[in-house]
């Protein structure tokens, strides 16, 4: 099985629960394939033995009942079903019993990017976690957004991310490495690009980074970097907007401050006030060629100061 092509890190036994989840999956399938063979094996045999060629119609017998057989194929499968229920139950029990000594990290899913926020306020676009520690993800989506689902296939873990609600998911990553994150609840045009990574770091490396000024582990000190740039990355803006003039989902950022745009309400200047609206109330004056409902509002996500920092940074991107 382990030669099968899969997402990064799938076979690495990446968390404390991976092996038991795989074992339960294996047992469930073994039991059910065996049960299926109790139907198919006799069928193949009868199709051969009682084909009209070997068993002419004069010999056909009308057997309509056999109480003991009928009881057997009711009771035995019922018992097997309870065994399978048990295998489903023990895995979910481990998966869904949140540890009490865990570190909490916030996950925000929005069209179409993942953002992570650590207890000290640091934000990233990949999820960095320390090895061998219980981590609880507190997940939500902005109220005006849609439902997503956060899946780490290598951890055998998934939970929906629902606007206006908080859901949770926990793990204890035992192996260093990078693991794929995918959105599994259909969320629109860039659903299949709503990807991210979990990066499991050695504890000392993780804590050195989390208390540093680097945007990501091993990265340069970003305290001197414009805040606007960090905000664009960490809030997922650049998964739909390029820094150049290429259109991804939304318009490219090159020269966005000060240019003229055509909207349903006429031509206007993409100035500070316009851009502020575009960030906080995106459907107000949509540039021709783009649709309403595509961009989530950042009202309540970004502070006034942060919005200003973003526009400051964009005005340097000519």
């Amino acid at each position: 099985m382990e030669t099968l092509s899969a997402v990064e890190g799938f076979w690495d036994n990446a968390t404390a629960l991976t092996a038991s989840a795989d074992h339960a999956a294996y047992m469930i399938h073994v039991i059910l394939v065996a049960l299926m063979m109790t139907v198919l094996a006799p069928m193949f045999y009868f199709l051969y033995k009682y084909s009209a060629k070997r068993h002419p119609k004069e010999k056909a017998e009308n057997i309509t009942h056999n109480i003991s057989l009928e009881l057997a194929w009711t009771i035995i499968p019922t018992m097997l079903m309870m065994v399978i229920f048990y295998y489903g139950y023990i895995v979910i029990k481990d998966n869904r019993t949140m540890p009490t000594d865990a570190k909490h990290i916030k996950v925000i899913g929005k069209m179409w990017s993942w953002a992570y926020e650590y207890p000290n306020g640091k934000k990233t676009d990949k999820l960095y976690v320390p090895q061998n520690e219980n981590i609880i993800l507190d997940m939500t989506a902005p109220k005006g957004d849609v439902i997503h689902a956060f899946w780490i296939p290598a951890f055998r873990q998934k939970e929906d991310v629902v606007p206006g609600r908080m859901t949770q998911l926990w793990f204890n990553a035992t192996r260093l490495g990078e693991y794929d994150v995918e959105c599994t609840e259909y969320c629109g045009d860039r659903h299949s690009y709503m990807l991210s990574k979990v990066v499991v770091l050695p504890k000392d490396e993780y804590y050195a980074w989390i208390n540093s000024n680097s945007a990501y582990p091993g990265g340069p000190d970003t305290s001197s970097e414009p805040m606007g740039k960090t905000l664009l990355t960490n809030n997922g803006c650049i998964s739909c907007h390029s820094m150049g003039d290429e259109t991804l989902v939304g318009p490219g950022f090159k020269g966005i401050v000060g240019r003229m745009v055509k909207t349903a309400n006429g031509e206007m200047t993409s100035d500070r006030a316009y851009l502020k609206d575009a960030i906080l109330d995106p459907d107000k004056d949509i540039v021709d060629g783009f649709s309403a409902g595509m961009m989530p509002t950042s009202a309540g996500v970004l502070s006034e100061e942060e919005v200003n920092q973003i526009i400051d940074y964009l005005s340097t991107n000519k």
């Binding site: 989840a21 295998y87 489903g88 895995v91 899946w151 998934k158 259909y186």
Partner: peptide, 14 residues
């Protein structure tokens, strides 16, 4: 039937 087992469904749902 495998999908009815909650733990397994957790991996393969959607």
């Amino acid at each position: 039937v495998t999908l009815a087992a909650i733990g397994f469904d957790n991996q393969v749902h959607d």
